[in-house]
């Protein structure tokens, strides 16, 4: 539950630069929490609240298009 989260655990902010995203879908396919979706051939952050900040989408994005903070 969100209410039980400690104050230090800030929710993740996932930013997608759609100008650089080429729609390879790697981020969507390997997100362990299924936070991302494809929309119009680009990545879209669909469920940011589920993000556990594992950073795998950012690490594997070939296009420098995703950042997680």
């Amino acid at each position: 539950m969100a209410g039980e989260q400690s104050a230090s655990k800030k929710p993740a902010v996932i930013t997608v630069n759609t100008n650089w995203c080429k729609g390879c879908e790697i981020c969507v396919a390997f997100c362990p929490k299924d936070c991302l979706e494809m929309e119009g051939g680009k990545c879209r952050v669909a469920r940011p609240d589920d993000c556990i900040k594992c950073m795998l989408c950012e690490l594997r994005c070939p296009d420098f298009a995703i950042t997680v903070e």
Binding site: K22, C24, I26, R60, C61, P62, F64
Partner: peptide
């Protein structure tokens, strides 16, 4: 954006 194709490992 760089010239590498979608899903090219070079950017990674």
């Amino acid at each position: 954006p760089h010239i590498w194709c979608a899903g090219c490992g070079d950017g990674i």
